[in-house]
């Protein structure tokens, strides 16, 4: 069973993080919690794409146009990644039905 977390929602970067590029990978640090995050190369691109509120479907559209990946695979893996980000409060989720 696929995990299509947040597919019907929009997501946007949360504030309060120091972000930097290191060898093509996006790294972040929370001043509040002292936690450091490495988003990797693909995660860094996702982070760039959600600088403004973006639906997950639109995010997947962009990624499948830029990367060699089938849409169902991309959708599932991106939704899992966003779930991890959401748990760490790195992103804010906007319910489009509200």
């Amino acid at each position: 069973m696929t995990n299509l977390y947040l597919v019907e929602h929009a997501v946007v970067q949360a504030e309060g993080y120091i972000v930097s590029d290191m060898n093509g990978e996006k790294v972040m640090m929370s001043v509040d919690t002292g936690k450091y995050y490495n988003l990797g190369r693909i995660g860094g691109r996702i982070w760039e794409l959600i600088a403004w509120p973006t639906t997950v479907n639109r995010l997947v559209d962009t990624l499948t146009s830029e990367y060699d990946v089938e849409r169902p695979v991309c959708e599932e893996q991106v939704s899992g990644f966003l779930q991890s980000m959401h748990k760490e409060a790195l992103i804010e989720v906007i319910n489009l039905e509200a």
Binding site: Y36, G40, I42, I46, C74, S84, M85, L90
Partner: peptide, 20 residues
Amino acid sequence: MENRTKQQWQVPTLETLDVS
């Protein structure tokens, strides 16, 4: 017809490290 070379995909992962 689109003929752009696409980049290699990798599974996006979130690594965390508590610096303190």
